[in-house]
Design a protein around this nucleic acid. Sequence first.
DNA 1: ACCTAAGCGAGACGGTACGTCAGGTCTTTCG
DNA 2: CGAAAGACCTGACGTACCGTCTCGCTTAGGT
Lengths: 205, 205, 205, 205
Amino acid sequence: MPKSSQKKTEPCTGNKAPGRPRCPEAHEKILKSAYEMLLEVGFNDLTIEGIAARAGVGKPTIYRRWSNKARLVIDAFLAETSPELSFPDTGKVKEDIRLQMYRLVNLMNSPRGQVIATIIGGGQADSEVIDAFLSNWLFPRREDCSKVIKKGMEREEIRTDVDIESVIDALYSPLFYRLLLKHGLLTEEFVDEIISIVMSGLDKS
Amino acid sequence: MPKSSQKKTEPCTGNKAPGRPRCPEAHEKILKSAYEMLLEVGFNDLTIEGIAARAGVGKPTIYRRWSNKARLVIDAFLAETSPELSFPDTGKVKEDIRLQMYRLVNLMNSPRGQVIATIIGGGQADSEVIDAFLSNWLFPRREDCSKVIKKGMEREEIRTDVDIESVIDALYSPLFYRLLLKHGLLTEEFVDEIISIVMSGLDKS
Amino acid sequence: MPKSSQKKTEPCTGNKAPGRPRCPEAHEKILKSAYEMLLEVGFNDLTIEGIAARAGVGKPTIYRRWSNKARLVIDAFLAETSPELSFPDTGKVKEDIRLQMYRLVNLMNSPRGQVIATIIGGGQADSEVIDAFLSNWLFPRREDCSKVIKKGMEREEIRTDVDIESVIDALYSPLFYRLLLKHGLLTEEFVDEIISIVMSGLDKS
Amino acid sequence: MPKSSQKKTEPCTGNKAPGRPRCPEAHEKILKSAYEMLLEVGFNDLTIEGIAARAGVGKPTIYRRWSNKARLVIDAFLAETSPELSFPDTGKVKEDIRLQMYRLVNLMNSPRGQVIATIIGGGQADSEVIDAFLSNWLFPRREDCSKVIKKGMEREEIRTDVDIESVIDALYSPLFYRLLLKHGLLTEEFVDEIISIVMSGLDKS
DNA sequence: ACCTAAGCGAGACGGTACGTCAGGTCTTTCG
DNA sequence: CGAAAGACCTGACGTACCGTCTCGCTTAGGT
């Protein structure tokens, strides 16, 4: 977890906090401003100065809580995207995955899809951003997916002699590929096509 | 003003540009400097000022030719990566693709792989960069790949009822995915795994 | 005389001029543009580039004729202000001077007064400008004034034991002073006052 | 002014400005550098970049305090030239003025005279410079002079039916005239001559 | 009737300085 | 005593002109 949580919780375990307490309103205003600007201008054109101005706080107030733009963005954006990408449970693995991929495609086609793209883009210059994206966003979803696939293996719907990580890569990477390179549309038909290609070789049959 | 009008229009109705032509040596020096600095410091820490200084040219000479850093990088980097990614011709489609994917993985693991990553990353804030990456780099290679797959279809090595574009996406996107997200290694084993998953469903059998 | 005249006349004194002669229309267009822009933006904000653009000529065409902005301005402005500042001949020295000073005040209150001010101002950074202003503009008028004063001395209207140069300075410097420092209005009443102060001590009485 | 007002007023219901105070050393270093460079290269060739470099500060630190070169020069030069131009008190008005004019001529012949000239020159393109020169430099000295003349009038040394402003102009403008146009030397003899011309008509006799 | 030298408009050249922006740090005052 | 505010220095931005230098041409006198 980023430093902000630690700093906030540690002194509070003792029942007195020395010095002036951090203004909780500032915290919220900063996150709100950062999130809004992220949607408006993307990760690269996001500036600490701009966030500070919009939130009506000083720059050090931001730097004190988040050591850099990446960590702030993580708190502002990544830490709260969960529920809409959950997996359904239809009883059939391929359908569970298909429906969740539909949801992901839907998200990618929304403004927030562009935010994800700019975060991954910005992360190419800052490994911390990528690391945070992985641990706060991607890995939880991959873990969910992994569970679904394992369930399918247990049900003997799909082969068990494949590397699950690679399967997940094969399924999801085309979506990110098109999100980032924009050489083709992100449609449900494309999802169907990818599932067809990837899963047809995994059928237990 | 009989003279000036004549002078201005007459020669320009002809075929050439008026004024001093742009110095081709400056062009080369700039591209060379940009390419070297790209490898040394990456896309984000690249500065026009630094390139100008290293190339021994003035900043306006750069801005006169490329409107921003992105376009310069495209010319500096993308215009010369071709030959090492050609497809072999072993007679077996799957092997042709496998070997070329090995080459791509090899490239991605070199410093130039990081340059590609930063270009795609930078492109998230500038669609022109992505467009240039597509037309100057990606599409030519996809076209090559497409030909190989079609050849395989003619030879009846693989099924003909699939969308070639989606197949290419399924094959290559995992490599870019790992290049950009760094959640897994880009190894030849990973290539084998992807080919196994994707191609096993495409076998004409 | 500025270099342009020399260049133009010298080869012509020799009976051969090799090469294409300089286009006289360009000369006129440049001077006209320079004069207009001088009125519009003043000496300091005058740019060779702007003059060239307005005149529809190339920069080298200007630099070929005038080595710097100062020399161009001299030709564009100073070489043609003469007639309106001539001295009348009323028979009374004090009146001749008074009327001519009225004319000068009138000129100084026109846009061209500001041009003179910016030329003197710009000349503080370029002694050539001042020198040209002196020889092309100021000295001819001082010479005229000197003749008028000498005539007054001969007529025994004024004392002969004073330094004429100092008298001219005493008479005219207040006008330039107010032109440049703008701490007081340049009116005919002010002229009267100065003449009263300076000439009252010079009366032959 | 969204941020500053809100934030500034809320916690600062107290009396002082929040934030780090402006470094007074930087202030001094900038003024010192500007003054030195003014002596070396004059107003026109003075650059903010050069001042910043010599003072060892960043350009924004200068721009934060002075909106343009003119205002900086005013502070750097004009705000501190007073004492050497004070009037003596010999008991005789003409002598008081003569001695002070000697001092002014002496100043004008020093490097600082050239600085004054370039400031007046530069002021022709920027009325703020002239205004500042008037209020910070010229008017205080004119006021001193005015007092001396009035004293002379009370003592019945000189006539009382003349406009004091015009007298001051008549006395001092020749010095500035020669300072700026350089058509004659600024000597004590010249001062004597001017005083002779101007004051001879003012004698109470 | 050709040379050939100098002119032409156009515009790129290497530079310098501009005034701005954002970065990340430091210092004061206030709660 | 630490949070908040804002000035600090740095460094790069992209622009405007500088004065010079090719370009491909035109012009006209001297061979």
